[in-house]
């Protein structure tokens, strides 16, 4: 019985360590965020462009000044005035350069403009931000798939 308890304890410890990181620390060839790990349901939902846009527009900045500019950018985006939307997002970007909400919108805007490579680059740059939520991370990953 003692022996069994020891085995269970060791196995539990292994389980904890295995859960603490999915990175084995030796695999240097894979640098992309594993998109396929997200649930298929969510993937299906975000494959709907309108839903995706709605979700992105729900994500806002913490900064009230940036919120105001983002609101104006979102209005332009809805009117399909992409140049003005971009101009507003760049204004916001000059105020804060570390906001996931801005990278998401820039990635989405470039996607709408047909600039897929740029869209992907903005998403990738957004993923380098230290403080973004998992939902922002998930949405940014969508643009890596372009």
């Amino acid at each position: 019985m003692k022996y069994l308890l020891k085995v269970v304890a060791i196995l539990s410890l292994f389980f904890v360590f295995a859960c603490s990181s999915t990175d084995n620390g030796r695999n240097i060839s894979d640098f992309t965020i594993p998109v396929n790990n997200f649930s298929k349901t969510v993937e299906l939902l975000i494959s709907n462009e309108n839903f995706l846009e709605d979700e992105i527009l729900k994500i806002n900045s913490q900064n009230p000044s940036v919120q105001r500019i983002i609101k104006s950018a979102d209005d332009y985006l809805k009117q399909k005035n992409y140049i003005a939307a971009n101009s507003e997002l760049e204004r916001a970007f000059r105020i804060t350069k570390m906001d996931g909400a801005l990278y998401l919108r820039l990635a989405h805007l470039r996607y709408k403009q047909g600039l897929l490579k740029e869209s992907e680059s903005f998403a990738y740059k957004g993923l380098l931000l230290p403080d973004i939520s998992s939902w922002e991370r998930l949405l940014l990953n969508v643009y890596l798939k372009n």
């Binding site: 640098f31 140049i83 003005a84 971009n86 101009s87 760049e90 970007f93 820039l106 490579k117 740029e118 992907e120 680059s121 903005f122 990738y124 740059k125 380098l128």
Partner: peptide, 25 residues
């Protein structure tokens, strides 16, 4: 940044453009 006409409309803009060329690591 941008060029506006006399009415204040954007005539041409020079948007922020990026392209990931080298991995950040």
């Amino acid at each position: 940044r941008q060029i506006k006409d006399t009415k204040g409309e954007i005539e041409l803009s020079y948007p922020y453009s990026i392209e990931q060329r080298i991995r950040p690591e």
